[in-house]
């Protein structure tokens, strides 16, 4: 059990702690593919920044809500932004390595989870605004 966990964790840990070693593997892909991967990384960074902006905006502009729920929504959005930033690097590293090795590109459930999370957050904010207006 512990052995299996170790084997599962060893690869991502190595990738995270010694990312430069990735460059020793395989062959350098066409620079256009690397640049496309870089732009995808930057797009994810912007997504992270957008979530952070959403969190800050909820805290600053949703003043009709009580402080408790408002802070909860804001913190969830900020945490989502942080998670998105970490995941951006991880995905960039994995894609870069897959391209060097000639493997298939890594698949991920993250976009689906993010879409669902964003939809839920939007509905909660709408409900919050409506309740705030009604309670006035």
């Amino acid at each position: 059990m512990i052995k299996r966990l170790w084997y599962g964790l060893r690869d991502p840990l190595r990738l995270w702690l010694a990312p430069e070693r990735m460059r020793a593997e395989g062959t350098t892909p066409d620079y256009r593919f690397s640049l496309a991967n870089e732009r995808t990384f930057l797009a994810w960074i912007r997504t992270a920044l957008a979530l952070v902006a959403g969190g800050l905006a909820v805290d600053q502009f949703l003043t009709g809500l009580r402080p408790g729920p408002r802070a909860a929504i804001a913190v969830v959005l900020l945490a989502g932004g942080a998670l998105c930033a970490v995941r951006a690097v991880n995905h960039w590293l994995r894609t870069e390595r897959a391209m060097r090795r000639g493997d298939d590109l890594p698949l991920s459930r993250f976009p689906v989870l993010l879409a669902l999370g964003t939809a839920v957050a939007a509905l909660v904010v709408v409900a919050g605004v409506l309740l705030g207006e009604l309670g006035r």
Binding site: F41, I45, A71, A74, G81, A82, A85, V86, V89, W92
Partner: peptide, 28 residues
Amino acid sequence: RPGPLGTRTAYTAAVCTLSVPIFGVVVW
């Protein structure tokens, strides 16, 4: 023919991004 993005640049960019929500929580 630009070289690929350096891992250190990518890590620094992500750490910069990560610091903003942390500051946001600190403000709160």
